[in-house]
Simulated assay, not measured.
Amino acid sequence: MEVQQQIAQILDEVLSLKGRSATFSASTPLLGAVPELDSMAVVAVISELEERLGIEVADDEIDGQVFETFGSLCAFAEGKLAA
């Protein structure tokens, strides 16, 4: 499964979006635009990313820019996979 599809699935499951993530494009805003994405949800999303993608995310790597758009979150995860 492609990384973007996995991330969309993670967002859908963690945030209970009921399939809304299937319409996300790279420019879809997340933080501040998806009401379900609060600070606790960010932690849950990161935990799922780590578990499902096999990556490690340090606390100091996460800021608002990572969760700004669906594309920025995907790019972050893809960068971690390439490292």
Rank of each mutant, 00 (worst) to 15 (best):
P35T: 15
P35D: 15
P35V: 14
P35A: 14
E36R: 05
E36T: 08
E36K: 06
E36C: 01
E36L: 02
L37M: 07
L37V: 10
L37R: 02
L37N: 03
D38Y: 05
D38K: 00
D38V: 04
D38M: 12
D38P: 10
S39V: 14
S39L: 11
S39A: 15
S39R: 12
M40P: 04
M40Y: 13
M40H: 10
M40C: 11
A41V: 12
A41G: 05
A41Q: 14
A41C: 11
A41W: 07
V42Y: 06
V42D: 04
V42L: 15
V42C: 03
V43A: 09
V43I: 15
V43C: 00
V43P: 00
A44M: 14
A44H: 11
A44E: 13
A44W: 01
A44D: 12
V45F: 06
V45R: 00
V45P: 00
V45C: 10
V45Y: 08
V45Q: 03
V45S: 02
V45W: 02
V45T: 01
I46W: 05
I46D: 07
I46V: 15
S47D: 13
S47T: 14
S47H: 04
S47F: 11
E48F: 01
E48H: 09
E48M: 08
L49S: 01
L49H: 00
L49F: 07
L49Q: 00
L49N: 07
L49Y: 07
L49A: 01
E50I: 04
E50T: 08
E50P: 05
E51Y: 02
E51C: 07
E51K: 11
E51Q: 12
E51L: 13
E51G: 05
R52C: 00
R52I: 00
R52D: 04
L53R: 13
L53M: 11
L53S: 09
L53N: 07
G54P: 01
G54D: 09
G54S: 07
I55F: 09
I55R: 09
I55M: 09
I55V: 15
I55Y: 08
E56L: 13
E56F: 12
E56Q: 15
E56D: 14
E56W: 12
V57I: 14
V57A: 08
V57M: 09
V57C: 05
V57Q: 06
A58R: 07
A58S: 06
A58M: 02
A58L: 12
A58V: 06
D59A: 15
D59E: 15
D59F: 08
D59L: 13
D59Q: 13
D59T: 10
D60W: 03
D60S: 10
D60C: 05
D60Q: 12
D60V: 04
D60G: 02
D60N: 13
E61Q: 13
E61N: 04
E61P: 03
I62L: 11
D63A: 05
D63V: 05
D63I: 08
D63Q: 02
G64E: 09
G64V: 09
Q65A: 11
Q65Y: 06
Q65L: 08
Q65T: 11
Q65W: 02
Q65S: 13
V66S: 07
V66T: 05
V66Q: 03
V66R: 00
F67G: 04
F67W: 03
F67V: 10
F67Q: 03
F67E: 03
F67P: 01
E68K: 12
E68T: 08
E68F: 01
E68Y: 01
E68S: 09
